[in-house]
């Protein structure tokens, strides 16, 4: 750890470039996984057999493929099929798709936790399926879903480092590049770890806040 603060001051600006990309990848894939997860979950609870089966198989396929393989597929294989993605696009798409499976299961659990009487009450005042979802089920499911959603956010922040395998110069890759050119492995990777931790702390606090709120009612 010799000269840690000196090295930290020197490498921090370079690593900050990585932080920016880490945040872009995390937020991008979080949004994508949320939208896709909602779609899968809606299909799953739609009551239409075909949709629900398609969604269930999709979720299983996605769950069964390692994120890193998904990323390789999008970045290295898709060009052969005529679709060329930038490394950043492939990273967001890959992580977004991979996490959509977990999001979907989380959302479905939240939706199914709502008392059936709520659905009947909505139906009894003439609400259709979509209106029941939008006005009655989803607003209540959000409360249940938020704590695990916060955990997914933390996991995605850390898993965004897998984007380094397809050349996205986010925090982990920046660290590795500096370390291999300076041989200051200890100082560099300690700094990288601290920077990930610093980004996680607000999310951890957010989860705690969600949990408190969910416990209230």
């Amino acid at each position: 750890m010799k000269g840690f603060w000196h090295d930290a001051a020197e490498f921090f600006p370079i690593l900050m470039n990585g932080v920016v990309l880490t945040i872009v990848v995390t937020i991008g894939s979080l949004l994508l996984s949320t939208v896709l997860g909602l779609v899968w979950a809606m299909m799953r609870v739609s009551g239409i057999k075909a949709l629900s089966m398609i969604s269930a198989s999709l979720i299983n396929v996605i769950r069964g493929i390692p994120i890193i393989v998904l990323l390789f597929y999008l970045y290295f294989v898709m060009p052969d099929l005529g679709v060329t993605l930038s490394a950043l696009q492939a990273a967001i798409l890959g992580l977004g798709i991979a996490y959509s499976a977990y999001q979907a299961e989380n959302f479905r659990a939240g939706i199914e936790a709502i008392d059936k009487g709520q659905i009947e009450a909505a139906q009894s005042i003439g609400m259709g399926w979509w209106l029941t979802m939008r006005r009655v089920i989803l607003p209540q499911a959000v409360r249940i879903v938020l704590p695990p959603y916060g955990n997914v956010m933390i996991m995605m922040l850390k898993d965004s480092s897998q984007a380094s395998t397809i050349t996205v110069a986010e925090l982990a890759l920046q660290g590795k590049l500096i370390a291999s050119s300076t041989f200051k492995n200890t100082n560099v990777f300690t700094l990288v770890a601290l920077m990930y931790l610093t980004m996680s702390i607000p999310l951890i606090l957010l989860v705690r806040h969600f949990e408190k709120r969910a416990g209230k009612r």
Binding site: E120, A121, S124
Partner: peptide, 20 residues
């Protein structure tokens, strides 16, 4: 059925009010 339900309302044993 949606029309019928707006014409025939229902009151449940367990109230089923929207808690939110």
């Amino acid at each position: 059925i949606l029309d019928i339900r707006t014409q025939v309302s229902m009151v449940f044993q367990r109230f089923n009010l929207f808690p939110h």
